Computed example of a mutant assay.
Amino acid sequence: MLYQKNWARAWLGFGLVWFLGAIALAPSNKVYQQGLVLFLWLPTLVLAWSARAVLIEAWRRQPALWVSVVLLIAWCAISLAWSSVEEPGREAKRLVYIMVFLLAFPLLAQAGTARMRHLLQLGSGLLAVGALVSIVQFYGLQGHSLIRRLYGIGEISHPILGAYVVGIAALSLLYQVPGRRGAQLGWMLALACLAVFMMLSQSRGAVLAMLLTVVIAPLWWRNRHSRLVAALALVATALAFYVVYDRISARGSSYRPEIFAAVLQMIGEHPWTGLGLGASYKVLTVGMQFDHSHNMFTHVAVELGWPGMLLWVAVWLFTLAEIVRARHTPLGKLLLGLWIFSTLAMQFDAASLTATPRAEWFISWLVVGLVMLLPWGRAENDACGKISGST
Rank of each mutant, 00 (worst) to 15 (best):
L320F: 08
G154C: 01
W312N: 13
L95A: 08
Q347N: 13
M1H: 06
I387T: 06
L194G: 00
E322D: 03
V283S: 02
L127S: 00
F241G: 12
A231Q: 03
E360Y: 13
F362C: 02
L304R: 10
L20T: 01
A238I: 15
G179F: 06
Q121I: 15
Y151M: 08
A81Q: 07
W11F: 10
F297A: 13
R60K: 14
W221H: 15
L161K: 07
G140Q: 03
L55R: 04
V313C: 13
R52E: 03
A64F: 05
G154I: 00
L95C: 09
M198P: 00
F197N: 00
I340N: 06
C384L: 11
H270F: 09
I78T: 04
W11Q: 09
A230Q: 10
F260S: 12
I156W: 10
A8S: 12
L366T: 01
L146P: 01
L191Y: 00
S124C: 12
L40W: 15
Q137Y: 02
K93S: 15
T113K: 07
L38R: 15
Q176A: 10
G385T: 01
S50D: 11
R358Y: 11
W312P: 02
A128W: 04
L161M: 12
E258H: 10
L12I: 07
I78E: 03
L126A: 00
N295Y: 02
R247I: 01
L150R: 05
L120V: 02
L119H: 01
L191I: 02
Q202M: 13
T354E: 03
S134C: 03
G15C: 11
A236C: 04
W365L: 04
S201Y: 14
A114K: 07
C193A: 15
G385D: 03
L20M: 15
Q110E: 06
V214S: 14
G278T: 10
Q62N: 03
Y245H: 10
S124Q: 08
C193F: 14
A114M: 05
F290S: 00
V54N: 00
F290L: 02
A238T: 14
A104P: 06
A206T: 04
I156F: 12
A77I: 13
A195Q: 03
K93R: 15
I340F: 15
H270P: 04
A48Y: 13
A261Q: 07
D349K: 06
Q137M: 02
L219F: 14
L317A: 13
R358C: 06
W11Y: 12
R224L: 09
V133R: 05
R90W: 13
H292V: 07
G152F: 08
A131F: 05
A231V: 12
T273H: 12
M1G: 10
P43C: 07
L146E: 08
V283D: 07
I216K: 09
L211G: 03
L335P: 01
A170Y: 08
S293T: 15
L239Y: 13
G15Y: 01
Y242T: 15
L310H: 12
G252N: 06
S28M: 00
A64G: 14
F341A: 06
L353K: 07
Q110V: 13
L234T: 09
A26M: 11
A250V: 10
R327D: 04
G385Q: 13
L344E: 04
